[in-house]
Structures are given as structure tokens and as C-alpha cells.
Amino acid sequence: MNLESSQILIDIFNNTDLYMLIFVRIIGFLIFIPVIGGNNGVAMVKIGLAMAISAIIFTSGNITEFAYINSIMGYFMLILKEFFVGAIIGYIVFFVFSSVYFTGHMIDQQMGYSMASVFDPVSNTQVPITGNLYYFSLCALFILNRGHHMLINAIFYSYKSLPIGKAYILGNNGLFFGIINIMIEFFKIGFLFALPIIGTILVMDIALGVLVRAVPKMNVFAVGMPLKVIAGLLALWVIMPVFSELYYRIYNVISELILNSIKVMMP
């Protein structure tokens, strides 16, 4: 270990209270982000990653002086505030990614897959098959296009705009309306992903309705269900090449929502 590394460790040891405040914001952020959030990944790896990022931020020079009531309760309240700042930023990403599960519910209901759900170990719930396909495809594109770099940059930027202990959370009307805006984007993205397949199946339903009028004795349920599944799978296969375009829309939405949430929490 060289002299510079030793000096960094000494500085961290002498400023343990400051380092812990940085650490809890980072760990709150890492808990919720996709790919490694929730039950994904190894807990020790996430803790080690949080400690490494905290050490980099600690030595970056972006941390300003902070003050709190000189008591255990005062420091504890500051820890809670820093954790919520990181959790809010991380949960924005998680919430936007989860919109594809909403898409999957709508698609599976139209295709007849609503009963064939799978268990998601992250949320400990049953999730739709199509939604699971979209979610993991989105995670893969996010990593391949270095979306995780954007998230790390966002958490670094948060220390410039939101110094330790300065975030405005309780009674913040701007943050409340920001959460409502996140929910609006959740439904917009969900409908955007589902619209091509739902539109295809709607055309199929109209065609079946016309066919039933022309051939009244035809068993529409025996014919319609397999046709819906085939049409849905074909539509899914057709739109997969343009999935990356939808990803860039989500990427831009995440960047905008994170930036807005940081701005509304600024003192």
C-alpha cells in the first residue's frame, strides 16, 4: 500500500461520521436500481461497491462542510435524510423499469397468457411472461449502452446540488408533484410498449367479429384463442428490432426525472 492510499484511509478514519453519511446515500441508491437492486446480486458485493464509490466521492473534493445537532439523534436524523435522498434517486430508475411489467400485464391479458406468470425473486411476486422478457431485455440494453455510467454520474452530481444535510424532503410540494409525474410516465411508457401488440390483437378481434357474422356456426373461441397467440407472438417478433428506440426514450425519461427530483430537493 503506497503513501497516498494510506493517507486516504487515515482521512476516512478521522472523518468516519462524514464517510458514513456518504455511504448511506450510496447504499440507499444501490438498493433500488435494477440489475443489482433488491435480491439481485450478492449483498457483500453491493456493500463493497457502495464503500468504493463512497471513498471516491469522499476524496473528490465535492463534499462541503455539514452541521447537525451534536447528539446521537441529530446524527441519526441526518443519516435518514441522506438515505432517503439516495433511495429516491434509485427508486425513480426502478419505477420506470417496472413500467414494462405493466406492459406485460396488458399484453398477456390480450394474448391469453395472463394465467402463465413466473415468480420474480426481486419483488417476490408473480410477474407476466412478456413483462419479464421486456424487463431483462431492458436491463441488458441499459448495461450495454453504459446506462450505469449515467446513474453513477447522477449520484456524483447530487452531491454538488444537494450537499450533505441540505436536501429538502419533508413538506416538499415539488417532490410530491414530481412523484405524480413519475407515475404519469410509468403509464405512458407502459402504454407505449404495449400499443403495437394490443393494436394487432384488436384488428384480429375485429376480423374475427366479421368472420363470425359471415359464418355463424363457427366456434370463435376455438379459432380465436390460437390466432390471438400467433398474432401476438408475430407482432412481438416484428417490434423487437425497434426495441432499442423505445429504450432510448426510457433512458431520456430516467435522466430527466432524476434531474428534476434533484432540483426540487435543492434548498
Rank of each mutant, 00 (worst) to 15 (best):
L211S: 07
I89Y: 07
M77F: 08
L78W: 00
T125Q: 15
D205S: 04
A167R: 02
V238Q: 11
F186I: 09
F84T: 03
G165V: 03
M20I: 07
Y91N: 15
I258N: 13
I262A: 10
I27F: 08
R25W: 02
I164Y: 02
M240Y: 09
S123Y: 07
G178P: 01
Y75M: 12
T16W: 14
F156P: 03
I57G: 02
L246S: 05
F156L: 14
V229E: 11
P34F: 06
F23W: 11
A231V: 02
G232Y: 03
L233Y: 09
L227K: 07
S54L: 04
P121F: 00
G190T: 08
F13Y: 11
L3K: 12
N39A: 13
I10R: 15
A194D: 09
A140K: 07
L162A: 02
A194N: 04
V127R: 07
V45C: 06
M204R: 12
F142I: 02
M265T: 02
K217L: 13
M115T: 09
H105Y: 15
V85A: 06
I179K: 12
A67F: 05
S54K: 05
G224Y: 09
K263G: 06
K188N: 10
F97P: 00
I88L: 06
F94Y: 13
L9E: 11
F193R: 03
V215R: 12
